Amino acid sequence: MATRTLVTVSAGLSTPSSTRLLADRLTAAAEASLRERGEEVSTRTVELRDVAHDVVNAMITRVPTGGLRPVLDDIAEADGIIAVTPVFNASYSGLFKSFFDVVDPEDLDGTPVLIGATGGSPRHSLVLEHALRPMFAHTRSVVAPTGVYAASEDWGAGGSGGRELAQRIERAGRQLAVLAADRSPAAADPYEEPVPFADLMSGLGT
């Protein structure tokens, strides 16, 4: 059985951050749903602040260096992506946008994506629909129907906001799991493992 791979991208800038907390909970929900479907799953979480300088260099030179190259490789091979950003000025953070600007759009074509965001006020929840969803639709990603926004008040223990957040996280994780599990393997590159030259020549004498 093939192992399904999930890559979680967290654009939080502080340690700890509510953005990373939401990213971890969404990842756990998607993992649990995949395993309930009998799938093996492997995950990697990327903190964008750790590769921020490499992202800026790649935007200027168009050449990924340092720790960015393996991150981009993982994105290209992922069966599902969880992308979570803090809200700055009513939109995604500059680091979040810059990172996905250096991702090859072809690597996101058809890839299931679960979007999430965090902010101090519930009024910023529309960032999922007016900023994140259009951005990933432009790259032809398959965006899970449920996006998850978490305001500061949603993290309170035992309140209705906390229960509703948990329900949204579970539903979104389940939707991503379905999309990732149904994702067809990428077509093999015929030039990745070419026929050895000796084998090609062996038939010329017949």
Results as ranks from 00 to 15, higher is better:
Val7Ser: 05
Gly12Pro: 12
Leu13Pro: 00
Thr15Ile: 12
Ser17Glu: 01
Thr19Asp: 06
Leu22Phe: 03
Ala23Gly: 05
Leu26Ser: 08
Ala28Cys: 07
Ala28Arg: 13
Ala30Thr: 12
Glu31Tyr: 05
Ser33Val: 01
Leu34Ser: 05
Arg35Ile: 05
Gly38Ala: 03
Glu39Met: 12
Met59Lys: 00
Met59Cys: 09
Val63Tyr: 09
Gly67Ala: 13
Val71Ala: 03
Val71Thr: 10
Ala83Met: 04
Thr85Ser: 14
Val87Gly: 02
Ser93Gly: 10
Ser93Phe: 07
Phe96Asn: 02
Phe100Glu: 00
Pro105Gln: 04
Glu106Ile: 03
Glu106Cys: 00
Glu106Asp: 13
Asp107Met: 10
Leu108Met: 06
Asp109Met: 13
Gly110Cys: 03
Gly110Trp: 04
Ala117Lys: 08
Ala117Arg: 10
Thr118Glu: 06
Gly120Ile: 04
Val127Glu: 09
Pro145Asp: 13
Tyr149Phe: 15
Asp154Gln: 08
Asp154Leu: 04
Gly156Cys: 12
Gly158Asp: 05
Glu164Gly: 06
Gln167Thr: 11
Ile169Gly: 04
Glu170Phe: 02
Ala172Gly: 06
Leu179Pro: 00
Ala180Cys: 07
Pro185Ala: 01
Tyr191Phe: 10
Glu192Cys: 12
Ala198Val: 13
Asp199Phe: 15
Leu200Arg: 13
Gly203Cys: 07
Gly203Lys: 15
Gly205Asp: 15
Gly205Lys: 14
